[in-house]
């Protein structure tokens, strides 16, 4: 299946969870926030939410700003 991750296409195995995606990106344990189809996915639900074909996922973090 294919998802849109931060605006770019990404191939993922079926039934990948949000936690699985984060692990694949080597970002496990990093301070970040995830949005799935414009809804927040709370950290506690990362292992439980399964991604589907066509999902739009945003992974964000804090950077310098004023």
């Amino acid at each position: 299946m294919q998802i849109q991750l931060n605006g770019e296409a990404m191939e993922l195995p079926e039934a990948t969870t949000v936690a699985g995606l984060i692990e694949r990106l080597e970002l496990t344990g990093k301070r970040l926030a995830v949005e799935l189809n414009e809804d927040i996915v709370p950290r506690s639900q990362h292992p439980d939410i399964t991604l589907n074909d066509g999902d739009r996922v945003e992974v964000v973090h804090a950077i310098g700003g004023g």
């Binding site: 991750l5 931060n6 605006g7 770019e8 990106l25 080597e26 970002l27 990093k30 301070r31 970040l32 926030a33 945003e58 992974v59 964000v60 973090h61 804090a62 950077i63 310098g64 700003g65 004023g66």
Partner: peptide, 16 residues
């Protein structure tokens, strides 16, 4: 601070 997309595929050990 600002909130921005995490750079995918770049050095994940970059200081935060």
């Amino acid at each position: 601070v600002a909130v921005r997309r995490t750079n995918i595929g770049q050095n994940p050990d970059e200081p935060n």
